[in-house]
Structures are given as C-alpha cells and as structure tokens.
Amino acid sequence: MFFTIWIISGIIAGWLTGLVVKGRGYGLIGFLVIGALGGIIGGWIFRMFWLLSSNWIGNIFAALIGGVILIAIVRTIRR
C-alpha cells in the first residue's frame, strides 16, 4: 500500500522537483518519471530514519526530497 502512495505522491512531486531544481532537458514525462522514482527513494530514505508520514503532504515532501536527490545524482553522473 505504501509503495502505491509513494508513486502517486512522486508524480505530484516530480512537477515540484522541476520547479525547485530548474531542470533542463527532461521534459514533462521525464519529470513525472523522476518524481515517481523520487517517491520510491524518498519513501525508502524516510522509512530508514523512522520518519513515517500519515498524510499526503508528508508523502509529497518525501517524494520531493527523493526527486531532488535523484536529479543531483543524475547531474553528477552526466558531468
């Protein structure tokens, strides 16, 4: 159940991630994919530190953090 919520929150967070990092070259679909993967990464990281959220805002925040981490990693690899 948490996995599905992380992905849905990640799609919303993908759009927010695009606003935060001012990414170029990914496009709308790219940011949606990054947001979904960020949702998985953020949810996993937050669970490691026992930071469980009980609402959508917390899930979206976790996905936003995961998306920003993912884009930072991708940008580092591209260079």
Results as ranks from 00 to 15, higher is better:
residue 37 L to A: 09
residue 23 G to E: 08
residue 40 I to M: 15
residue 72 A to W: 02
residue 18 G to W: 14
residue 68 V to K: 03
residue 72 A to Y: 04
residue 62 A to R: 06
residue 56 W to V: 13
residue 67 G to A: 08
residue 77 I to P: 13
residue 53 S to A: 10
residue 64 L to M: 15
residue 68 V to Y: 05
residue 47 R to C: 05
residue 16 L to Q: 14
residue 63 A to M: 07
residue 59 N to I: 02
residue 26 Y to G: 01
residue 51 L to R: 07
residue 18 G to K: 08
residue 37 L to K: 09
residue 61 F to V: 15
residue 45 I to G: 05
residue 27 G to K: 04
residue 24 R to I: 03
residue 62 A to F: 03
residue 66 G to W: 05
residue 67 G to M: 07
residue 64 L to R: 01
residue 64 L to A: 06
residue 26 Y to A: 13
residue 49 F to W: 04
residue 66 G to S: 07
residue 63 A to F: 02
residue 11 I to R: 02
residue 24 R to Q: 10
residue 24 R to Y: 08
residue 29 I to P: 00
residue 17 T to G: 08
residue 19 L to G: 07
residue 52 L to W: 11
residue 33 V to H: 02
residue 16 L to T: 14
residue 16 L to G: 15
residue 40 I to N: 10
residue 53 S to H: 10
residue 68 V to F: 05
residue 55 N to V: 04
residue 51 L to Y: 14
residue 75 R to D: 09
residue 59 N to E: 11
residue 61 F to Q: 14
residue 71 I to M: 10
residue 63 A to I: 02
residue 22 K to Q: 06
residue 27 G to W: 05
residue 37 L to S: 07
residue 34 I to N: 00
residue 17 T to S: 08
residue 53 S to R: 07
residue 15 W to L: 11
residue 26 Y to E: 15
residue 50 W to Q: 08
residue 64 L to D: 02
residue 48 M to R: 11
residue 57 I to D: 01
residue 44 W to N: 09
residue 47 R to M: 06
residue 47 R to D: 10
residue 25 G to S: 13
residue 12 I to T: 12
residue 49 F to L: 15
residue 47 R to K: 11
residue 14 G to F: 04
residue 44 W to T: 13
residue 32 L to A: 11
residue 59 N to F: 15
residue 36 A to K: 11
residue 74 V to T: 09
residue 46 F to P: 01
residue 73 I to L: 12
residue 36 A to M: 10
residue 20 V to Q: 01
residue 12 I to P: 00
residue 21 V to K: 10
residue 13 A to Y: 13
residue 37 L to C: 13
residue 37 L to T: 04
residue 27 G to F: 03
residue 32 L to R: 07
residue 46 F to D: 12
residue 63 A to S: 15
residue 47 R to I: 11
residue 53 S to Y: 13
residue 24 R to M: 12
residue 12 I to V: 15
residue 45 I to H: 04
residue 44 W to H: 10
residue 49 F to T: 15
residue 63 A to N: 06
residue 23 G to C: 06
residue 23 G to P: 06
residue 40 I to G: 06
residue 73 I to D: 01
residue 58 G to I: 09
residue 53 S to E: 04
residue 53 S to W: 12
residue 73 I to G: 01
residue 17 T to P: 00
residue 46 F to K: 10
residue 71 I to F: 13
residue 63 A to Y: 03
residue 52 L to G: 11
residue 74 V to H: 03
residue 13 A to M: 08
residue 36 A to H: 09
residue 24 R to H: 10
residue 19 L to W: 09
residue 30 G to A: 09
residue 70 L to Q: 05
residue 60 I to N: 00
residue 57 I to G: 14
residue 62 A to W: 03
residue 69 I to C: 11
residue 16 L to I: 15
residue 14 G to Y: 04
residue 66 G to N: 04
residue 21 V to A: 03
residue 51 L to I: 12
residue 53 S to V: 03
residue 60 I to K: 00
residue 11 I to S: 01
